[in-house]
Design a protein around this nucleic acid. Structure first.
Length: 818
RNA sequence: GCGGACAUGGCGGAAUUGGCAGACGCACUAGAUUUAGGAUCUAGCGGGAAACCGUGGGGGUUCAAGUCCCUUUGUCCGCACCA
């Protein structure tokens, strides 16, 4: 049949994917950086399962945004890659015997294919795969730079241990006492591990937050996580010993109320100060604390425990003796691991003192009659505090420290909750730590020219808590680069978050085999202009990546302060039952099934239209059917338009034409604004309005075919970012040259948006009574006159006086009568 | 426990930031078309017979409140003995 054209389907998808690839349409132009735009989605982990709805939602719609930007003339850099190291592949290997490398590479192949079927603008020339030696060579190189700079160090510390994953975890990876990955309760272990000194950047990480175009919620999470706290360190001497320790407090104003001090049970000082008489109970208590799980220890409802050490400290101002206790409500890792206890003005100390019969001394009174029943934890007026009596807490917390400072017993101090990032992992599938231990030379970094330290293939994965690499003789045994003697490699691998902390720097220069990235080049390409990914990374990836950027800047490898200028989090698509999608619930949506049935553009458009992007929401099969209908509606429209091209028409711009043109320009205006802001649902709604208006106009007997053609041309452009294959197909059908994505994005004409006459609401005393048409050129006075003359107004005016008239141009008039 | 966000038809969700609540879509109803089904096209669609009433509940500010303030309930999130 002549002129027969197949309805939009995956065949159309394939046709255009092929054409895009052959024409290299989405190839990034390295020579034209004036309008470069780096658009990035958080790269994905190549899991065994296929691309899921979440990937589509993230990648597909960010791609739509990028496509609009491209049509607006930006030179869009839109790379894609894989965060390919990690536990799932290793756990899979333990279960099935399939090597992580083999399964990962196979998964990557599948996902690449699926990503291509999505029809996104990814430039695959810049692909990055973190498990490739060409990549992790540079991950290791960065580790060595951090080591040289003193930002990577080894220490023995009580660290988080996941008994199920059989590895240590960073603080950020412990969620409510459980493992971020598997939820297993985390325990503490004393181990010597590698840390990155992220705390060195705590203040800057905080300071740069306000100017970032990030969701406020995310900034808040980082602010809380960094946890800056202004206070003071105050020195206490141990009685009859040449020992002292410092406490951190935010309430130096309550110093005179100190009746005892408490050390964390893990504090090293405990051994030195505990008297013989109390050794037994202190040791017993410390043993008991070790057994308490982290979850229990963090519980606020748990009754406070602790023991007296037999030792006394000297109050730095009064010289009084105060007992030194140990208790597990004091955390070893925060502040100095010691606190001064002021039971009168701290709820925890109050509870503790009450339980153990320690003194409670009031030193703060409430200001003007506030209820200051103990424990009174608010600021107030000092009392029982010698020369500080009568001044406010606010003044005293500085004044008291100043006094101590003169005597060398204290100073103002800022403390952060943020801890250094523990990066060692006792697992196989990660980047090996490029460090060698030599009996003679100690810790020896692998020389840079010997990188990468390749991950050996033949390794036993018995998950027994020992690093698999430690059991690989040919890997672990090496020679010392310094002395040539026998030495051992570090048997741990790096946290995969290390790999993902710099991948955005590698993308633009992914083939560089001389350096991790060229400084001049990435200074031009970065920072990332738009970064889109899940909110779950707020305190992990997004914090680590910022730290890496700042550290690399300070080491002279790049010249910007922040990696991601603008950040968007996509919401979560739930199952049709409103529950989180999971295999066990059986509510998962498999994109492939829908794409086979409807084509990838319809799947993408439904994702755009069915949800508020940052909210997400429950999946609906009806919703995707509606999208199919909409696309069919447009398809028929274009077919009809082309078929009727040569039929007679008009050229005038009458009322109907003006109305169509208004909807057209309104759509252009708002699709542009909404897409820019990731409000894809309303953007699609505006194109639907436009289609409705075109149908309405097309039903008229006399048509301005020029206007109709121009309007449909704009419609296709507006749809192109969301339905790229379909738009190309329609574009071609209309006889336009390849590609629609080289066509300029339409710009709206403000004057087309002005109607001759507007309908406004008429209110009497704030209540809408009726609607009235007024010329849009009418001023307030004229609108008032027209309204008051209207016959319908008379009922509301009868026997009343007009007190006030408010006119909101183009919207309403409110007449206040009495 | 502390802090934050949100709450709008039967459903998904809009609302120029104080100015016609419910855009757009789903579902539903009616009509047209079709041999029939599906599809398609057109129209209607918060409640109420109406005056009017309606944005979780109660109160307030204002000519005007989904939007601002106070209070209360519920959901989600973040932090959680951080001194």
């Amino acid at each position: 049949m002549e002129g027969y054209r197949m309805k939009y389907s995956t065949q159309v998808d394939k046709k255009w994917q092929k054409k895009w690839e052959e024409s290299q349409l989405y190839r990034f132009d390295r020579d034209n950086l004036d309008k470069k735009l780096y658009c990035l989605e958080m790269f994905s982990y190549p899991s065994g399962a296929k691309l899921h709805v979440g990937h589509w939602y993230n990648f597909g719609l960010t791609d739509s945004w990028a496509r609009m930007k491209r049509m607006q003339g930006y030179n869009v850099f839109h790379p894609q890659g894989f965060d390919a190291f990690g536990l799932p592949a290793e756990n899979y290997a333990i279960k099935t015997g399939i090597h992580p490398k083999d399964s990962t590479l196979k998964n990557i192949e599948t996902m690449e294919r699926q990503l291509k079927e999505m029809g996104a603008t990814f430039d695959w020339d810049y692909e990055v795969v973190t498990c490739a030696p060409e990549y992790y060579k540079w991950t290791q190189w960065i580790f060595l730079q951090l080591y040289k700079k003193g930002l990577a160090y080894r220490k023995n510390a009580p660290v988080n241990w996941c008994p199920s994953c059989k590895t240590v975890l960073a603080n950020e990876q412990v969620v409510e006492g459980g493992c971020e990955r598997c939820g297993t309760e985390v325990t503490k272990k004393n181990l010597t591990q590698w840390f990155f000194k992220i705390t060195e950047y705590a203040q800057e990480l905080l300071d740069c937050l306000p100017k970032l175009d990030w969701p406020e919620k995310t900034k808040k999470i980082q602010t809380n996580w960094i946890g800056r706290s202004e206070g003071a360190e105050i020195e206490f001497k141990v009685e009859n010993k040449d020992l002292s320790f410092r406490v951190f407090t935010t309430r130096a104003d309550t110093l005179y109320g100190v009746t005892y001090v408490v050390l964390a049970p893990e504090n090293e000082l405990v051994d030195q100060i505990t008297t013989d008489e109390y050794k037994g109970q202190v040791e017993a208590y410390r043993e008991q604390v070790k057994k308490v799980s982290e979850i229990d220890r963090l519980s606020t409802v748990r009754e406070k425990t602790g023991v007296f050490t037999g030792a006394y400290a000297i109050h730095p101002l009064t010289g009084q003796k105060v007992q030194i206790w140990i208790a597990d409500y004091v955390l070893a890792g925060y502040g100095t691991g010691c606190v001064m206890a002021v039971p009168a003005h701290d709820e925890r100390d109050y509870e503790f003192a009450t339980k153990f019969g320690l003194d409670i001394v009031r030193v703060i009174k409430g200001k003007d009659g506030v209820d200051d029943t103990l424990p009174f934890t608010e600021y107030g007026i000092l009392t029982g505090s010698q020369e500080f009596d009568g001044i406010t807490s606010e003044e005293a917390r500085v004044a008291i420290v100043k006094k101590l400072e003169k005597e060398g017993k204290g100073e103002l101090k800022v403390t952060y909750r943020l801890r250094d990032w523990l990066v060692s992992r006792q697992r196989y599938w990660g980047a090996p730590i490029p460090i060698i231990y030599c009996e003679k030379c100690g810790i020896v970094p692998v020389p840079e020219d010997q990188l990468p330290v390749e991950l050996p293939y033949n390794v036993k994965f018995t998950p027994d808590g020992e690093s698999p690499l430690a059991k690989c003789e040919e890997y672990i045994n090496t020679t010392c680069p310094c002395c040539g003697g026998p030495a051992k490699r570090d048997s741990d691998t790096l946290d995969t978050f290390v790999c993902s902390s710099w991948y955005f720097l590698r993308y633009p220069d992914n083939k560089n085999d001389k350096e991790a990235f060229n400084r001049e080049w990435i200074n031009k390409m970065l920072p990332v202009d738009k970064y889109v990914g899940g909110a779950e990374h707020a305190a992990m990836h997004l914090l680590y990546a910022r730290f890496f950027t700042k550290a690399l800047r300070d080491m002279g490898y790049l010249d910007f302060d922040e990696p991601f200028l603008s950040l968007v989090h996509q919401g979560t698509i739930l199952g049709a039952d409103g529950q989180k999608m999971s295999k066990s619930r059986g509510n998962t949506v498999l994109p492939d099934e829908y794409i086979q049935k409807y084509g990838s553009d319809i799947f993408r458009m439904y994702l755009a239209f069915g949800f508020a992007y940052v909210e997400g929401g429950p999946w609906s099969d009806d919703g995707i059917k509606a999208m199919d209908r909409f696309v069919g509606r447009v398809e028929r429209l274009v077919e009809k338009l082309v078929a009727e091209r040569n039929e007679p028409g008009i050229t005038e711009m009458g009322a109907e034409e003006k109305e169509l043109n208004l909807v057209r320009h309104n759509a252009i205006k708002n699709v542009t604004i909404d897409t820019e802001q990731f409000q894809f649902n309303t953007a699609i709604a505006r194109t639907m309005e436009l289609v409705n208006a075109i149908y309405k106009y097309d039903a008229l007997p006399q048509k301005n075919r020029g206007l109709l053609e121009d309007t449909v041309t704009d419609l296709l452009k507006l749809m192109a970012p969301f339905a790229p294959h379909f738009a190309e197909e329609m574009w071609e059908l209309m006889g336009k040259p390849f590609s629609i994505f080289n066509a300029p994005w339409p710009v709206h004409d403000e004057s087309a948006l002005v109607r001759d006459e507007v309908e406004i609401a008429v209110q009497f005393n704030g209540q809408i009574k009726f609607k009235i048409n007024v010329p849009s050129s009418a001023d307030n006075k004229e609108i008032e006159e027209i309204t008051l003359k209207d016959s319908r107004s008379q009922t509301y005016l009868a026997g009343k006086n007009v007190v006030k008239v408010i006119v909101v141009k183009g919207r309403l008039i409110n007449i206040v009568v009495k």
